[in-house]
């Protein structure tokens, strides 16, 4: 009995130590103005690049240049993936730009299945640009509309800060399996963009908690570094190897890093005093 008490007490001590600290009270709402403004610039730059890259990509699709369109698919998506938490605020556009076949009851044959992955399906699975032109036009129109809407948008701080974790949740829930880019297997490009987008947010708010929560900063940075090192092994030319080249061990390393980042970054809003 005595032994049991001692044991559970010490177990509790351990679990208490890894619990997130109480939300920091030292961060004033005004402190966030700078980082949010900087993030808005980051989003705008990515959107400009997305619009330009999508133009080149969809032009290649419409010109019937399968090889060129294939080579542009993964890099074009990166600027979308990097700012996904903001892009997703408009769920109608997120659905038409980035939904996957299994979001639709009739899968690839579903008329609602449009956007990047519909083009990916045509290019990589059917190796053709046949009948893709309307999807190319729609993607271009949707991306242009997205840019317009976000330009007019005041970014809610909790969405920005929460976005660091949201990006990791996306990877953890549906990307680590390789089901995002299932026809092209270019998932590692998406990963890179998701991680960069998450780290950008983390880096912007980092100075606000660096002093008060150095241990947290060290842990999160360490996990981002671990991801970078793992992804760097698969660098090829300007991009990455296909996802099926990823070894099971490295996939496990990435999965664990993503889960840990998701756990830790889920406390970021609270640490910054945001609801």
């Amino acid at each position: 009995m005595k032994l049991k008490t001692t044991l559970s007490a010490s177990l509790f001590a351990i679990s208490a130590a890894i619990l997130p600290r109480v939300a920091s009270a030292e961060v004033a709402p005004l402190d966030l103005v700078g980082p949010i403004a900087d993030y808005k610039v980051y989003v705008s730059e990515n959107l400009e690049k997305l619009v330009a890259d999508t133009k080149t990509f969809t032009d290649a699709v419409k010109a019937g240049d399968v090889d060129k369109a294939k080579s542009l698919f993964a890099p074009t998506r990166m600027s979308y993936e990097a700012i996904e938490p903001i892009a997703e605020l408009f769920s109608d556009l997120d659905g038409s730009i980035d939904s996957r076949a299994d979001d639709h009851e009739k899968a690839e044959k579903d008329p609602e299945f449009t956007g990047f992955h519909r083009l990916e399906y045509g290019l990589f699975s059917e190796n053709s640009t046949k009948e893709l032109a309307p999807f190319a036009d729609k993607l271009m129109a949707d991306v242009t509309e997205l840019n317009k809407r976000i330009t007019d948008l005041t970014l809610p701080p909790e969405k920005v800060v929460g976005g660091a974790a949201v990006l990791m949740e996306e990877v953890a829930a549906t990307k680590i399996s390789g089901e995002e880019d299932r026809y092209s297997h270019t998932d590692l490009w998406d990963f890179k963009a998701n991680f960069d987008g998450s780290r950008k947010i983390f880096d912007l708010v980092r100075p606000l908690i660096e002093k008060s929560d150095g241990e947290f900063i060290t842990k999160v940075s360490g996990n981002f570094d671990k991801v970078d090192v793992t992804l760097a092994k698969y660098k090829k030319g300007d991009g990455y190897e296909l996802y099926d080249k990823l070894t099971d061990d490295d996939r496990a390393v990435l999965a664990a890093a993503v889960n840990t980042l998701a756990e830790d970054l889920s406390t970021l809003r609270g640490k910054l005093g945001l609801n």
Partner: peptide
């Protein structure tokens, strides 16, 4: 549920 458990 993992994501839910990581929500304040």
């Amino acid at each position: 549920v993992e994501r839910w458990d990581r929500t304040p």
